[in-house]
Design a protein around this nucleic acid. Structure first.
Lengths: 168, 168
DNA sequence: ATAAACTTTCAATAAGTTTTGAAAGTTTAA
DNA sequence: TTAAACTTTCAAAACTTATTGAAAGTTTAT
């Protein structure tokens, strides 16, 4: 397989995975493009390379910056803005984990905390079932949250090293 | 908060979380409904309870069974089919992890394995950048895969216990 | 065999999401 | 200032996904 075809495949695969995980396909593709590009790209080049409109490119880049996955660069004496992605895979994973925790896990945990407090007659199967499910899910959410917290602070080698020592 | 309202909130929250993670909202809601229901429900009751059509209920229940999260039950002397969810949170998490690994992680890993093999001139920044990103992501995918594998085989207490001992 | 009780299918439609592109806005150099 | 070079916005259109509901299919009891 030649390099340009391989890049194309990578961009497609990343886009598909993104869309299966609730991330807009184009956003994942722009990210993938920047990951396999040495240096920076202009909006123009991204539009061209992925055949997307100016508006789409602009919004997608904005979102990617909002996720902390892409940064802008101004070159001295140039009008254009250049974009590049942090290419450290562990940083990417942490950044995504951090954002999703904030945007999705935290709101759900807040609701679960409320629901765990709901009082009722524990002889009533309706109540007992509700309470058990909510309590169990709440515990799991807290475990996930703690683990993410550790991950966010961890160095990659230490993290996986610890995991595999444990699960040997 | 009263029980019916609390159930409603739980169903909504679960539906929202599902849709953010690439799982159809209705599917997550039906699952949530079954999680807070003692015993079983008929298609009719699910339709009624969530205000969805017969066709939608049927397909959603089929999907949930495909994910291994819900089972059918035939009661002796009755024509109707009854549905219930496994309420063990750890089983649910494992089941979801198992299916997503099969449906999403595995196909991507197959492509990454191909892309890692692509040859080129390592002096060429285009190639070097591509190769590094793909190789790094491939390694991370393999780490995730191994961890999931451990999780699938693990007992809940042991799993979290090990994780927290490590990350103390 | 028949019919009642139930389940499944799927074409049509609705709802939701993404993308476009032209117009408005901004910045910079001269 | 002005105008060129660039970025941002957003209403409309395209596309994607989810839902409906009626018709077809299946099962069971008689």
């Amino acid at each position: 397989m030649e390099l340009p075809e391989a890049k194309q495949k990578f961009i497609e695969a990343w886009g598909k995975l993104g869309s299966e995980w609730g991330i807009n396909r184009t956003m994942a593709q722009v990210h993938a493009l920047l990951l396999v590009t040495p240096g920076e790209l202009t909006t123009e080049e991204i539009m061209e390379s992925l055949s997307i409109s100016r508006g789409n490119a602009n919004m997608t880049l904005r979102d990617l910056m909002g996720w902390g996955l892409v940064e802008k660069l101004h070159k001295a004496g140039e009008r254009k803005e250049y974009f590049f992605a942090d290419k450290n895979t562990w940083n990417i994973a942490r950044q995504v984990a951090k954002e999703r925790r904030k945007r999705e896990l935290e709101p759900v945990m807040k609701i679960l905390d409320e629901l765990v407090k709901v009082k009722g007659d524990s002889k009533d199967p309706e109540y007992a079932t509700f309470n058990k499910s909510v309590t169990d899910i709440n515990k799991m959410a807290k475990n996930v949250d703690k683990t993410l917290d550790t991950m966010l602070k961890a160095e990659e080698n230490w993290f996986w090293g610890s995991i595999f020592k444990m699960f040997k």
